[in-house]
Design a protein around this nucleic acid. Sequence first.
DNA 1: CCGACTTACTTAGAAGGCTAAGGATATTTG
DNA 2: CAAATATCCTTAGCCTTCTAAGTAAGTCGG
Lengths: 187, 187
Amino acid sequence: MTKRSNLAQVIQHHWRESVPDDRLAHLIKDASRGLGRALQMRLAEHGVSFGHWTFLRILWNGDGMAQRALSDMAGVMEPTTFSAVKAMEKLGYVERRQKPGDRKQVFIHLTPLGHSLKDKLVPLAEEVNAIAVEGLEEREIIAMRKALLAMIDNLARDEAQAAGDNRRIPSTREVAGRLSSAQPSRK
Amino acid sequence: MTKRSNLAQVIQHHWRESVPDDRLAHLIKDASRGLGRALQMRLAEHGVSFGHWTFLRILWNGDGMAQRALSDMAGVMEPTTFSAVKAMEKLGYVERRQKPGDRKQVFIHLTPLGHSLKDKLVPLAEEVNAIAVEGLEEREIIAMRKALLAMIDNLARDEAQAAGDNRRIPSTREVAGRLSSAQPSRK
DNA sequence: CCGACTTACTTAGAAGGCTAAGGATATTTG
DNA sequence: CAAATATCCTTAGCCTTCTAAGTAAGTCGG
């Protein structure tokens, strides 16, 4: 498990105060890594890697979607999903199935084992969340969430524009249709 | 450059709304990745990798510190710093020097080339920052910064505790002494 | 129906980060 | 002083993610 000395933490804190410019970006990055480490530590005690958590979360909420849809929901590229799913298949958490008459798409289903992890793992994430926001008021958290969403949208717009991405924007209905292949499979 | 279709973005947004629990952690992660991608895109046009940016930022603010101190400031583990510094040395951005009478520590110094990158690269980070916070009020940004710092501290405390890290906490004076080996080398 | 395009999965390889472990050098302590 | 301990750099190897490129399978206009 990652262990950074208190000295290192103090140095970092000290340094953080002395940089005028893009502090915000670095604060966000640090917070993200802190959250990641905290969760990773806890997941590791149950033999689950952080990378797999990302996908399990989604599958618990309704499995059976195509591999590509899973990528989209996780917000990662296809090869990432591919290797994670392959690994989880080997661990017995998921199964990859094809539908007759469609040799193209691969649908990802949780096994009973994969399902059973939910009750053990979700509380860990909740614990991390609780620790992270300790001492913050609900109002502050809501404000932060709103600000983060605005930033994400700003950046996505910038990115889309930079990529010359002038494809049409799909309607919510279409997306909903695409997602509906996932059955709500509440344990 | 990473290009995610609008469809993928909409799917992600849709999904994001439907997860009750640890949304905050995922928003922070997404924001962090968005910021990273935006900066990476711009750095790449100048032939600088995102990994090197992390260290250059610090060195521009005062180089000549030991490799270990650089790790601490960057908030990464030593091997990460080692390979980045080695790579930047090969690129001619930094030099690794030893002091006579100390065969242990390696001090990292910017070359003129390394220095010269500052004027080109810093504006890119400022641009990304400006894009990200577009539409947010100063008040909101300050609030977010405060909340993020609180979260980082909460998590660091948790981490230190989990690691059984009951070492004494060094004073600010000690840390300042350790940092003072870096000369303020404003271009 | 057929060729062109698009979509979905896969493979290969690299970047960036981490842990674990090793070697060398300082520092502290008996 | 010498031995034990701590610190710093390095090596090795894994994990997560990405880009680039390939392959197979559906879709669509003519």
